[in-house]
Design a protein around this nucleic acid. Sequence first.
DNA 1: CACCATCATGTGGTCGGACCACCACGGGTC
DNA 2: GACCCGTGGTGGTCCGACCACATGATGGTG
Lengths: 233, 233
Amino acid sequence: MDETAPQKGTVTQRAIERIKAMIGEGRLEPGQRLPTERDLAAQIGISRSSMREAIRALTVMGVLEARHGSGIYVTQLEAGDLLETFGVVADLSRGPRLVELLEVRRILESTATGLAAARITADQLAEVEKHLTAMNATEDPEEILAHDIAFHREIVSAAGNETMAAILDGLSSRTFRARVWRGYQEEGAFARTRREHAAIHRALVARDPDTARAAAAAHVGEVEHWLRAQLGG
Amino acid sequence: MDETAPQKGTVTQRAIERIKAMIGEGRLEPGQRLPTERDLAAQIGISRSSMREAIRALTVMGVLEARHGSGIYVTQLEAGDLLETFGVVADLSRGPRLVELLEVRRILESTATGLAAARITADQLAEVEKHLTAMNATEDPEEILAHDIAFHREIVSAAGNETMAAILDGLSSRTFRARVWRGYQEEGAFARTRREHAAIHRALVARDPDTARAAAAAHVGEVEHWLRAQLGG
DNA sequence: CACCATCATGTGGTCGGACCACCACGGGTC
DNA sequence: GACCCGTGGTGGTCCGACCACATGATGGTG
């Protein structure tokens, strides 16, 4: 038995845990620059290749950020950084799981919209209205989708919970919505979507949390119901 | 200009997109075995090292699974596989973000508990009761924590939304709860926790969704309120 | 024939070293 | 003082070798 820590699992896994522990214990602050890959590898006693894989893993998790030619840095550890992979989940999910994802979105987004009705500022409301009118002024599906996403994002961020906003961002990833909504809107759901958006907007202007929550739940619920029917038939 | 795809970003990034696309297009089915690292690398035209990093990235996302000596396989792409990194978020979050995470958990878990009250089977209810009594029968904090987690997990999974259950699993990761609840329970919150658990259980037995939802929201809300006070003072 | 220990093969895991692409900094130029 | 450019250091990529493990074939044994 030697004095070095016994090998648990793969060396790369060890390295990942080591770095995660350093951050968890506060020895590495957000934004701080790490030693070079070569130094880190030597320090832990593994090869640079393995250390690179560990860094890649932490990069994917949104914990580290590698800048070519500059160095490796700890991210700000904000919700957006850490939940980026959430979009991948939405992109690769199919069948019944899509309905489950929409259900989660309905629950979170309706709550967030309700909160937003009580907290939204005049500036934020103006931004929401900008996307609402822009969405109604064009027929280009791409543009509509972009403003649709921005419309909801603005509302959700007005609720004041960055973590929830980040999760909903992943749940509303562009490719995800494009996939689900393509069929939905082809069935002439444009008019209904506009009506629902208008209802949400009205509730926000009226600072009516209950109505806003219900309107958002109904909005997402419509898509959810349509998708459920698609899968069932 | 050559006929090969132009290099967008790093080669590793390209490889990640390629494999993700293969799965998204259905060319790779869940559970299926991929070509060897060496073959994949040659096929895309990159080195094995870079391909390994791409595989590592997808492994972290829960999309692929590497079995030493056997091969690389596509996971079942179930919620649990894909949302594993969610626990890392909870583990590395601190300060105000912990409150935000608890708020998300309160929203989702209260809804799930309400649904469970309407859907839970006799067997599942028996399992819930098992953990409830076991939790009350011991003084060992470790054991209490384990049964506490299992108690909530059983209820949430009874709600029938695997995706939601997976998210809540991450939000209730062992280290996360250990960190937050250590201080909370040291303040003599054991009795209150037991009362709240009993209330949730009663509502489940009575098949009363509204009461169950309220009880769960109050339960998580208590911890949330305590944590908010800790950070404020 | 049925069973099991053994081994050969192929796989992912690790290593070391080399070179390339890029960035940041500082000295030189105007 | 502002600007340009060289230079050192960093992450990104590649190669080839070896190790650790899992699996199936092999051949012996009952």
